[in-house]
């Protein structure tokens, strides 16, 4: 007999230590049962709904990879037309690939139309479900199967796309960044996002044991390191103004974060690796300075 009272049920097929399973648990804990969830293709959708099963104890609908925001718009419009919107929260939950790359056009349209829903990006920084291909969320210098580090390359050449800023540029009344490593911070932000009227956006940093190459017991530890090195700033942005920043008590050098993961391991052995690490440190320092972390 299953003993938990959580809305995200066990028995799902996420890897041991899965970041996306934690994200789903926290989101449902934060929002409660009066919500409708839309999930595009990706790890979370695949491991939580192996037909004919579902881990979701709330109404849940699978969209295509590219159209979660459009489906969520339709759910909202339909509830309004039926006079049943009331307090029901609508949440679309997509991976970084689904959000930052392939679904960005539909997402932009949904925010432009101003639907009352929350979009949550669970960013594990690559296309995990199909075998760790690079996405717009992949950080600079990470090795992935489509940006392999080797003699000719140090890994991903491009910086991570600043998706929260793009969503902010749509005039969203609430945009926040958070991490599965800070459950209380994440739950507060997701809850708040669903309570604010209009299209709101939460970007969740999610360390993936399989795709990043670290032991499954360290999922939360790695998320904490990303925040403590200032590589992942956490904040609340309300009506365009930064209204809350997670302050770092003890800022750590980026090496501590990088060396804990296989996807950055090459930086410690290839010629010129030290220069790349220096550039990554500069990115962290820029964040710390820019956001007063």
């Amino acid at each position: 007999m299953n003993k938990t009272t959580e809305l995200f049920a066990p028995g799902h097929r996420g890897c041991a230590g899965c970041c996306d399973a934690l994200a789903a648990k926290f989101m449902l804990k934060a929002v409660g049962e009066n919500c409708i969830v839309v999930t595009p293709t990706g790890c979370l959708e695949v491991f939580s709904t192996p037909f004919p099963e579902s881990a979701w104890n709330v109404p849940w609908i699978h969209s295509l990879f590219e159209n979660a925001a459009a489906v969520a718009s339709g759910v909202e419009a339909a509830l309004k037309a039926l006079g049943r919107k009331n307090d029901t929260k609508i949440m679309a939950i997509g991976g970084d690939g689904a959000t930052i790359d392939i679904g960005i056009r539909g997402l932009s349209g949904a925010f432009e139309r101003g639907h009352d829903f929350t979009y949550v990006c669970v960013d594990n920084e690559a296309y995990m479900n199909t075998g760790v291909q690079r996405s717009g969320g992949t950080p600079f210098a990470a090795t992935t199967t489509t940006t392999p580090a080797g003699k000719a390359s140090f890994g991903n050449l491009r910086p991570k796309k600043n998706m929260p800023q793009i969503m902010l540029a749509h005039g969203s009344p609430y945009v926040a960044t958070t991490s599965v490593a800070y459950p209380k911070d994440m739950m507060r932000k997701v809850k708040k996002a669903t309570e604010v009227t209009g299209p709101t956006y939460v970007h969740v940093h999610a360390p993936c044991t399989t795709g990043w190459g670290f032991d499954g017991s360290k999922t939360i530890e790695l998320g904490r390191l990303a925040v403590e090195t200032a590589l992942w700033p956490m904040m609340d942005i309300e009506n365009g103004d930064i209204t809350g920043v997670h302050k770092i008590r003890n800022k750590r050098p980026v090496e501590e974060y990088l060396k804990a993961q296989k996807r950055f391991k090459h930086l410690f052995s290839i010629p010129g690796g030290a220069d790349i690490i220096k550039k990554i440190q500069e990115l962290a320092d820029w964040n710390a300075d820019q956001y007063d972390l």
């Binding site: 299953n2 049920a9 066990p10 028995g11 799902h12 097929r13 041991a16 939580s48 709904t49 192996p50 037909f51 004919p52 099963e53 579902s54 881990a55 979701w56 104890n57 709330v58 849940w60």
Partner: peptide, 26 residues
Amino acid sequence: MSSKLCIGGIVEPGSTVINKTGSWRT
């Protein structure tokens, strides 16, 4: 539960509990 396709592909909420993942453990 039947594994036949149903209209809309609707399935029972929380039904992954039939899958006891404890067997994965090392």
